[in-house]
């Protein structure tokens, strides 16, 4: 019987001086893809940095199979694959050289590294560009290379910080497909503010807002929860500004009949009708986070 890794976060806090970046987050992660959704400054990167021990926590625990990751140290990091938000790469290295370098940092033997790197380059479609310098890679290629290095060593926990940032639609689809492909029997955490990425691949969604985890559930459940609280109204172009002044967090949608202004409220406002079609995580986001930001 194969035992999969379990990552428990207990009351995790992080303060930067007077500012609270993370305020007592408690979550348990098991095998699956978890999308961490939140606005800019919600604490997504801080959360991930705490999990990779790049930032010291103020209080709380992060347990990997029952043991604190600070105690485990190297043992924990052997199970970890991390893809940072910034495209931090050695521009003078070739793609292949960079992967070999990361393999040596991950204590992978040369023989094993050769096999894994070949396989990963094929998977991320960088085999042809492996011998070129990273300075000549496009943004999408750099992201794929970063993903490849995160997958080196067959980690059990894969942490991806904004993996599709700056990519065009085609690249984003490719990246999402890759993540789905490698996520079997692993814990994949990926932080993003692009809702559609989570909709497509996440098994669970963690909604973060101002350092707090508002909701942790499957996308379907989250949508069900808010479907009775999403309202919309048909507007002409000239009317949008007027409606927006009253409901600034709303969403303008282009439908067959014309423009529609969609909002999220506890009760149905005057002039608005319940939205029945095309409900998505964006509406969940708008309900839980968008309104709060507007307030």
């Amino acid at each position: 019987m194969v035992i999969f890794m379990k990552l428990e976060i207990k009351n995790l806090k992080k303060n930067y001086g007077q500012k609270t970046a993370l305020n007592g987050v408690s979550i348990t992660f098991e095998a699956g893809i978890y999308g961490i959704l939140g606005e800019n400054g919600a604490g997504k990167s801080t959360f991930l940095n705490l999990l990779t021990d790049n930032v010291a926590r103020t209080s709380g625990e992060v347990l990997s199979d029952g043991a604190d990751i600070l105690t485990l140290g190297k043992k924990y990091r052997r199970k970890l694959g991390y893809m940072p938000q910034q495209q931090g790469l050695y521009e003078q290295f070739t793609g292949k050289a960079f992967l070999f370098y990361m393999a040596s940092l991950k204590e992978i033997s040369l023989k094993e590294a050769k096999g894994q790197i070949q396989e990963l380059l094929l998977k991320v479609n960088l085999s042809d560009a492996a011998g070129k310098r990273i300075s000549r890679y496009s943004g999408g290629m750099k992201q794929r290379l970063l993903l490849a290095q995160a997958l080196l060593g067959k980690p059990e926990l894969i942490i991806l910080d904004e993996p599709t940032a700056g990519l065009d639609p085609k690249e984003r689809i490719r990246m999402r497909n890759l993540i789905t492909e490698v996520s079997k029997d692993k814990i994949v955490l990926f932080a993003t503010h692009i809702v559609s990425d989570i909709e497509c691949i996440a098994d669970y969604v963690v909604l973060l807002h101002r350092g707090e985890a508002l909701r942790i559930d499957t996308p379907a459940n989250l949508i069900d929860e808010v479907k009775s609280r999403i309202f919309e109204r048909q507007c002409k172009k000239e009317e949008i500004d007027e409606v927006r002044t009253k409901y600034p967090y709303g969403n303008v949608l282009q439908k067959r009949d014309g423009l529609v202004y969609r909002i999220a409220e506890e009760r149905q406002p005057e002039g608005f009708l319940p939205a029945k079609e095309d409900l998505s995580l964006e509406d969940v986001y708008m309900f839980h986070i968008g309104r709060k930001i507007a307030d």
């Binding site: 940095n49 990779t52 790049n54 190297k74 990091r77 910034q86 521009e91 990361m102 991950k106 204590e107």
Partner: peptide, 18 residues
Amino acid sequence: TSQMVRLLRSAPKGRTGL
């Protein structure tokens, strides 16, 4: 400047080994 610090530190040999 290469923005590699976080990535390096997350690797097993990225601290003492490096």
